[in-house]
Design a binder for these strands. Sequence first.
DNA 1: TATACGAAGATCGTATACGATCGACTATGG
DNA 2: CCATAGTCGATCGTATACGATCTTCGTATA
Lengths: 238, 238
Amino acid sequence: MITGPVDIHWAPGVVVSKSQFAYEQLHGRIVSGALAPGARLVLAQVATELGVSVVPVREAVRRLEAEGLVTFEKNVGATVSGIDPVEYLYTMQTLSLVEGAATALSARSVTAQELAAAREINGRMRAMLEEFPQHFDPVEFTRLNHDFHSVLFEHCPNPHILDLVHRGWNRLTALRGSTFSFVPERAGESVAEHERLLDLIEHGAPVADIELAARRHRSATLDAYLARTAAHPDFPTL
Amino acid sequence: MITGPVDIHWAPGVVVSKSQFAYEQLHGRIVSGALAPGARLVLAQVATELGVSVVPVREAVRRLEAEGLVTFEKNVGATVSGIDPVEYLYTMQTLSLVEGAATALSARSVTAQELAAAREINGRMRAMLEEFPQHFDPVEFTRLNHDFHSVLFEHCPNPHILDLVHRGWNRLTALRGSTFSFVPERAGESVAEHERLLDLIEHGAPVADIELAARRHRSATLDAYLARTAAHPDFPTL
DNA sequence: TATACGAAGATCGTATACGATCGACTATGG
DNA sequence: CCATAGTCGATCGTATACGATCTTCGTATA
């Protein structure tokens, strides 16, 4: 048996530890949906599958726990996190906050090409609604939605805020599936709001306006969700 | 030698694992300043001191790394994080964002007693400035400042946001020391801004106004810091 | 039948062992 | 004297071993 680090060679010259390898494997499978919420992660079993020992796996699982993708219970084990309505509310509200900020902080750095790319993506989203309204695919629509917003916040110069945005998106897409499967009525409004957001950015609107627009855009989706479930109507909002 | 979990009995009925124990020990020593930025954390050495083996210590260190209190370099080791001007900027900006939100979300839940307590704390801060201006103690002033703000954001109903606020404060106080040692000129303005913030909350001002006031209060301190260092004058702000 | 008790299996938490890696120091050649 | 290659010690990364704990399931008893 091989012992020691045995660094897996990733790209030429790049080596990753086994715990990093285990983390990336599990993270990928959770975010991609291959590991669905509720799936149990038995350390020894995962270790065997990945061809490493339990120690790196354990470390990977703890990292995933810190990101909210996995729930770890003492002396019991790890499962891929579920996300109940309350957790959904918390996560969406937090994402609304940090994504609004990231979008505003990025606004001045978005290039004309990127703006055009975002418009093109939004055009495809609109086309999905107008041309094939009877075959609306919420999964694909949600994916495009992610790509659209990525363009707008990826230039965020504050890596802490950007990291929080990524974590929020990961949690939502991995644990909740496609947003627009839950609130399809938001699809049309989203496309229109995207257009307004692009205009604000293009015309160099005050960053405060951009932040508010991006924030509202997301919290409106949360409101639509809450209206459906009628849960926590008195939860304070911003 | 004792092996196995050996759960330390904390309070009656409460048991914590050794990795939790190690985490709490290290976290406490870092936040309290007993372990200063730059201090090396040699796993085997820490393990001996705490009376556990290296595995739980390693896990604790990784948790601290995720919180930004420790820097862990592959195959080299862990050190208590320093915080350079750029990191300070990132952290303050993020804290400005989440603390503003947490304060606004808490505003409606703050009781009259708590409001009075906050006023009392702010009164002591004012007294420090007015009565003994020649013996201004920035450390004590910073502590009171923390207590003041804690009252205003601790009711935040969104635990994710509240957690981010705590992490931000921890990072700043542990790694940077007392804020008002760096920008003593902000002390007087802070007391005045606190008063305005309390008034807004007491009179039930719109949460958006409260959020903005709380956010500005913090970002003004950041601005004062940046004015001193003259670093990154073009960094985008909210 | 329902409940309480207890034993067995699965799984976790931790200790220990050891190869792998990095940084510093030393030696050697230019 | 400086640069470069080689060696050594300190420390990390991972594998393995094993006691501790939780859950489950069967059995006895009211």
